[in-house]
């Protein structure tokens, strides 16, 4: 089992008639993903046609879900309308909404997150590359690709990857695949300060997934989500984990006001996060080129096979 999505997952694309949403809907169809519906208010009844694919478009997420049985939606709508698009997924009772949109006002996300309290829908993102569960075909074809990641760099296997950064995730996946190590699922949780699913949520899912034998945790400076995840790993996770933190060279102390600086505080820097990783038994990648090797070292130390 992968986490969050499988090759059978049926997905809706909100914003399928836009340039960005349309382009990535096509790439997902090429990858063999079950893109079963599009949503663009006012364009219900039309079709998104691509090659032999003819994806029906609906006016609302609820209509699309009801007609197709889709349980997941990916959001490509522009920032001013993205919060609304997320809440529409909640209202339709979807399992998962993945918000790719970059630039959503923080206040909108504060309100969305409050409104989602207690809802069954999980949010991944916003401002994220999405999620990929690789398939078994050539270049991992036949998998579920939600979002904007390059599908072909993946390979079906046993490593889980979670990251706030898109290209850094691709870098890690590429290293793994080059070493013939496949992935269960790769999750980009996004770089915004207010997001749906955090590192720890994903780590818990990987830990509970018997097919995932090892985990790469990629973080950045700012916030304490990585630290929280690391402490949980120390207490609960027996699987090998490799970690990388970007931003060691980012200088501190210039533009930010004092309150931010304190509240950002001591656990915010790359050095502090790396120290916590080490203390929690996470094998730290010294450079981004070392991410796959770091996981191999961690796996060897625990006698775990990744392939």
């Amino acid at each position: 089992m992968a986490i969050l999505i499988t090759p059978e997952t049926k997905i809706i694309v909100q914003g399928i008639t836009g340039d960005f949403g349309g382009r990535h809907a096509k790439l997902s169809l090429d990858y063999g993903t079950q893109v079963v519906a599009g949503v663009t208010p006012g364009k219900g009844g039309q079709f998104f046609e691509y090659g032999t694919h003819k994806v029906p478009i609906y006016n609302s997420v609820a209509d699309a879900a009801k007609a197709t049985g889709a349980t997941v939606s990916v959001i490509f709508v522009p920032p001013p309308f993205a919060a609304d698009a997320i809440l529409e997924c909640v209202d339709a009772g979807l399992d998962l909404a993945v918000a790719i949109t970059e630039g959503i006002p923080i206040k909108d996300m504060i309100r969305v997150k409050r409104a989602m309290t207690g809802a069954k829908t999980r949010l991944v993102g916003p401002n994220c590359p999405g999620i990929v569960t690789p398939g078994t075909g050539k270049d991992s074809f036949g998998g579920c690709r939600i979002g904007i990641a390059p599908g072909y760099i993946h390979k079906k296997g046993h490593v889980g990857v979670v990251s706030r950064s898109g290209t850094l995730t691709y870098e890690a996946v590429f290293q793994l695949t080059s070493k013939n190590i496949g992935q269960t699922t790769c999750v980009g949780i996004g770089g915004d300060p207010v997001n749906g699913t955090n590192h720890l949520d994903v780590i818990k899912l990987f830990n509970a997934d018997p097919e995932t034998h090892g985990i790469i945790l990629i973080g950045e400076i700012g916030g304490n989500a990585e630290v929280e995840a690391a402490r949980w790993i120390k207490a609960n996770c027996k699987k090998p984990v490799a970690g990388f933190i970007a931003g060691a060279t980012a200088p501190a102390g210039r533009r930010m006001g004092h309150a931010g600086a304190i509240v950002g505080g001591a656990e915010d820097t790359a050095a502090a996060k790396i120290a916590v990783f080490k203390e929690c038994g996470i094998e730290v990648a010294a450079t981004p080129s070392d991410m796959a090797d770091a996981l191999l070292r961690a796996a060897k130390a625990k006698g775990v096979t990744l392939t």
Partner: peptide
């Protein structure tokens, strides 16, 4: 909007 760098 795309990354986290404090204080820059």
């Amino acid at each position: 909007p795309r990354f986290i760098l404090p204080d820059l």
